[in-house]
Amino acid sequence: MIEFKNVSKRYDNTPAVNDCSFSIPSHKFCVLIGPSGCGKTTMLRTVNRLVIPNEGAVLIDDTNVADIPVTKLRKKIGYVIQTIGLFPHMTVEKNISVVPKLLKWEKNRISKRVDEMLDLVGLEPKQYKKKRTSELSGGEAQRIGVARALASDPPILLMDEPFGAVDPINREILQQSFLKIQRELKKTILFVTHDMDEALKMADIIAIMKNGELIQFNSPLEILSKPENEFVKSFFGTDRIMKRLSMLKAKDYLQEEPENSPKDQPKITITKDFSLKDALSILFEKNVDSAQFITEKETGFLSMPVIREASGDGYVE
C-alpha cells in the first residue's frame, strides 16, 4: 500500500503540491491525472524520493519512505518515464539487467530474467537482446523501459506518462499489452497521465489533481457518474455519460420483459463485451424505447429508463 499523508511540496515558495492525502491499496492501478503543472509528477516522484516533500510523508506498507535508505528504496520501485531514459551506451540486454546487476544477481539468473522480460513485453529476445537503443522505434524503446522497470520484480511501479511520446496507434497497443501484463503481475501502480481516455481505460482508481490539490479520488465509474465539481466535469468532457455507459456491460443490466410491452420489439444478438453505449445506439438506430438482447447464455430486455439510470447522472439511489 502506498499512502500519501498531507504531502506538500513548494519550489521557491510556489506550491507544487498542497496538502494531498490518499492511499493506493496494494495491487491496484492508480492513475494520477490533471492538467499540466498540477503537481502530479511531483507527487509521483515523492514515492521514490526523487522529490522530498516539505511537509507530510509518503508511506509504503506503513513505513515512511524517508526511513528507507534511498538506493534500497529505489531498487524496490520500478520507474518508467515519458522520455524512457534508456541508457544509450548500453544494449537492450544491459539496460534491462541494470537493476538485477545492482542487486548482485548471478549471471545465469540475470540472463534468464532478460529473456523473460522481453517475452513479457512482447519482443523476441534473440532478436532484440543485442540491439543498441538507437536502433529501437519509440514503441519498442518504451517496451524496453517497462521491461527494465519490471526486471527485479519490484512490488511497486511508478509510471510518468509512459506512453505519452508514442503515436496513438502504438499507444493503444502498448496500453492493451500493459493491462495484460498488469493482470498477470498485479503490481501496485501509480501512473501519471494527462490523457483522460488513457486514465479511464487503465485505472482501478483515479486521482484527479488541480493546482497542487487533490480534487477527487475514486473509481472511474464513480467519477464519471458523480464528478466532484465543474472542473472534473469539464475535464472529462461533455460525453462523460457516454464514457460511463461504454464502460458498463449490457449483459449485466438485462431485465425481465416489462409488462404491457409492445409485441414486435426488435431482437438483437450481442457479445459479452457489448456495452450499454452500444445498446443505446441500437435503440436510437431502431427508433424504439426498448429491445430484447440475446447473449450466448442469457436473454433480457433493455429500455431507455434502465440505461438512463445506469448512466448515474442525476440519479440518487
Binding site: N48, K72, R74, I77, Y79, I84, F87, L102
Partner: peptide, 29 residues
C-alpha cells in the same frame, strides 16, 4: 547527458559513484 538519463540512473537506485562509473563516464567518454 540528458536530465532523463540522470533521473533513470537515480531512479533505478544507483549510488552517486555507481552512476558516475556506469553511466556518466561511459557517456562522456
Amino acid at each position: 547527458i540528458a536530465k532523463d538519463i540522470h533521473d533513470a540512473a537515480e531512479g533505478v537506485g544507483m549510488t552517486p559513484l555507481q552512476k558516475l562509473f556506469k553511466v556518466e563516464l561511459p557517456l562522456a567518454f
